[in-house]
Each structure stands twice: as structure tokens, then as C-alpha cells.
């Protein structure tokens, strides 16, 4: 691909080109494998997650993007039989080491799910829930709720109906509510698993704008199906694919990781190039 000078493709990138090397990492995966029972869903991933940047995971369905993302904040612990081998370092601490409390990990590394999952409570209580379980004083809640909703670009739409159910909002609003809920506990890293998968283009555009805003303060990892979205929102992109081994079993693998513009414009691996030119160019 020699489209480097092509202005129309260049225009599809939403972020300034990232440096070749990650200067400051918040997390790092070292030789990470994820298993469901005996099945090795993700094989040997090594990569850093850069601080205050947006890292996108792309790749075909079933290549283990969700599985890997869930190992970043020990959500895999909830699936019976799921197991992580290797090291998932967070500021140098292996979050799977036996003396680490998964509750503390999840407080610092928040997650937004593919399908919006507001609690069956009021909008206010949806946001206040996280701070409340962490023991926040009642007097501070109003302010936290407002601040979180403002940052999630939802405040103007809901400020007059904070006591209506979060489940009565539209899909796009529900997803922003979930992002606000996540911000309310002031995490360090936000993991997003295809946050726009069930949203229309307008709602999607709102969430993407929001991600740009949030990247100033948070480190974000986003799984996306949508190549254009990865190009629009991310600083770095990791391309995954599923290899078939000798026994015919599929294992997810990291093929290529680098600054988004490099991955899209001059991929080093032929599989990345094939996937991107097939779905992007």
C-alpha cells in the first residue's frame, strides 16, 4: 500500500500520529495466554498500553479481543474455568499475583460493555452507585453525579429527569450513562468492549467525540469491529487474528501492534494488510 500521501485516507485519522515507541506505559502484557478450561483462546500476547492514549483492538470475530480485554481487570475471574497465564502488569504490578485484590483492580481499571447495561435504578442512582459502594460521603454525591454526567456529555439531556429509570433512556444515552457511571469512580484506565456495537451512527459519533475528550485524562482501550472507528479514535492499534493449529483449534494471536497510522498505512504483516485493505481501503 502506497497511500501515505492520499489525503482522503489521511483525513480518516482522528488523532495526531503517535510516537513509534510507547514512552510511558500504564499497563503491559507479558507473554499472556488466556484459557477457558483446556481451550487456549488467546496465545502469547506481548504489548504495552500507553498512558493517556487510546489503544484499539481490531480483528475478526472470535479472535479473542473480548477475552483479552477482560483479562485487563480480572473480569475473567467471573467465568468458571477461565484462567490467565503470563503477567498483566499495571504500573509494574502483576494484577494476577496472589496478593492483589481484584476489587481494587476493577476500581482502578473500569469497563464499559458491548451491550449497555444500566442498573434498574434511577439515572442518579446509576451514577452514585459506584461512589456509594466505595464509601463516598452522601454530601459529595450530587456533585459527583453532575460532574460525571457532564464529562460523559449526557448532562444536558438528563439533568431534568435524574430520578427516572436509567433503562428508559435510548441505547446511545444508556451507553453514555454507563461511561458516566465508570468515570464516577475515577478510574485510571477505561476498557471499552465494542461500546458502539448496538448504536446508530449519530450515537456512535457522540461516543467517539467523548472518547477524544476522555483521552486527555484517562487511558482507554477499545475493542472495535469497525475499522474506520479504530482509525478515527485511536492512537495505537493492535491487530489480532485467529490461527488454526495442527489439530484444527483456533487460537487468538496478536499479529501486529503499532501507531494507528502505521498499522493502517504501512502494515508490516501481510495478514494485517489483507484485513485492512479488505475492510478499510
Amino acid at each position: 500500500m502506497t497511500t501515505n500521501e492520499d489525503a482522503t485516507v489521511g483525513a480518516q485519522f482522528g488523532r495526531a500520529a503517535a510516537s513509534e515507541k510507547v514512552d510511558e506505559a500504564v499497563m503491559e502484557l507479558r507473554n499472556v495466554h488466556v484459557f477457558y478450561g483446556d481451550y487456549e483462546a488467546v496465545r502469547e500476547v506481548n504489548m504495552p498500553i500507553a498512558s493517556r492514549e487510546i489503544t484499539a483492538f481490531i480483528g475478526p470475530s472470535g479472535c479473542g479481543k473480548t477475552t483479552l480485554l477482560r483479562s485487563f481487570n480480572r473480569m475473567n475471574d467471573l467465568i468458571p474455568g477461565a484462567r490467565v497465564a503470563g503477567e498483566v502488569l499495571y504500573h509494574g504490578v502483576d494484577i494476577y499475583s496472589s496478593d492483589v485484590d481484584p476489587i481494587e483492580v476493577r476500581r482502578r481499571i473500569g469497563m464499559v460493555f458491548q451491550k449497555p447495561n444500566p442498573f434498574p435504578k434511577s439515572i442518579y442512582d446509576n451514577i452514585a452507585y459506584g461512589p456509594r459502594v466505595l464509601g463516598e460521603k452522601k454530601a459529595n454525591l450530587d456533585e459527583i453525579v453532575e460532574r460525571s454526567l457532564v464529562r460523559a456529555a449526557l448532562w444536558e439531556e438528563v439533568k431534568d429527569k435524574l430520578d427516572t429509570s436509567g433503562m428508559a433512556l435510548s441505547g446511545g444515552q444508556q451507553q453514555r450513562l454507563c461511561i458516566a457511571r465508570c468515570i464516577a469512580v475515577n478510574p485510571d484506565v477505561i476498557l471499552m468492549d465494542e461500546p458502539c456495537a448496538s448504536l446508530d451512527p449519530i450515537a456512535t459519533a457522540k461516543i467517539e467525540d467523548l472518547m477524544h475528550e476522555l483521552a486527555a485524562e484517562y487511558t482507554i482501550v477499545i475493542v472495535t469491529h469497525n475499522m474506520q472507528q479504530a482509525a478515527r479514535v485511536s492512537d495505537r492499534t493492535a491487530f489480532f487474528t485467529a490461527d488454526v493449529d495442527a489439530k484444527g483449534v483456533r487460537h487468538g494471536r496478536l499479529v501486529e501492534f503499532g501507531p494507528t497510522q502505521d498499522i493502517f498505512m504501512s502494515p508490516k504483516d501481510s495478514r494485517t494488510e489483507g484485513y485492512i485493505s479488505g475492510r478499510f481501503g
Binding site: 476489587i103 447495561n117 442498573f119 459506584g130 459502594v133 469512580v185
Partner: peptide, 13 residues
Amino acid sequence: QSIRAGSLALGAT
């Protein structure tokens, strides 16, 4: 299950 996941992901016990 998504309600439980949502709660746990916020750092609830």
C-alpha cells in the same frame, strides 16, 4: 448477568 458484571466492574464487592 450483565447487572452483576456492571456492578463488579465498578469495584463493588
